[in-house]
């Protein structure tokens, strides 16, 4: 069973949905990688995404293990190319035109119009994530705690995620 073409297709498609951030593509990623292609389970996806928050660099590097599990090392490289190639090319092309589009009144309209939609997509992704991550009072308390601390302080988010891992080890087994 060669999964490589499917991996390339799925991640190239997901790539175009990442308006406002990788999380925007999360609901669709869950459907395609878990339900349709069964490359991993729903809880594995939630775990990979969450652990990915601890890695440096762009925050969707969690797609690499999905590619690896479904298609080996080649699959891992392929999902990276598929997920970052199309948007990179688009950004490169638009980058050359952006300055010239400054006088085009619709540029502002598009930016202002896409802002609420991308926020909505992030929120939708967050709800999908929460379904696999919030199971009761303890997990909800961690989520709310992290939210409040991040809104009140300038602490590095990775430290909070790490702290939550420690809390998890101490309280959930």
């Amino acid at each position: 069973m060669n999964q490589l073409p499917a991996l390339a297709r799925v991640f190239a498609y997901l790539s175009l949905l990442t308006v406002g951030g990788g999380m925007a593509a999360f609901p669709e990623m869950r459907i395609l990688t878990v339900d349709v292609h069964q490359w991993l389970t729903s809880s594995q996806l939630v775990h990979l995404y969450s652990v990915g928050q601890l890695a440096p660099g762009p925050n969707m590097m969690m797609i690499v293990p999905i590619g690896d599990w479904a298609g080996g090392s080649l699959g891992a490289i392929l999902v990276l190319l598929a997920f970052f190639g199309p948007t990179a090319l688009l950004t490169f092309i638009v980058g050359r035109w952006w300055k010239r589009l400054e006088a085009w009144p619709w540029r502002t309209s598009i930016q202002r119009g896409l802002a609420p939609v991308s926020i909505g997509l992030l929120l939708a992704g967050c709800f999908t994530l929460a379904k696999g991550a919030i199971f009761g009072l303890e997990t909800a308390a961690i989520a709310v705690g992290v939210l409040l601390i991040l809104l009140q302080t300038r602490i590095n988010p990775a430290l909070l995620v790490l702290g939550a891992a420690v809390v998890g080890v101490l309280s959930f087994d």
Partner: peptide, 11 residues
């Protein structure tokens, strides 16, 4: 992982 996932939601 439970802790990390819950924190990610907050993030």
């Amino acid at each position: 992982l439970k802790g990390v996932a819950a924190a990610s939601v907050g993030l």
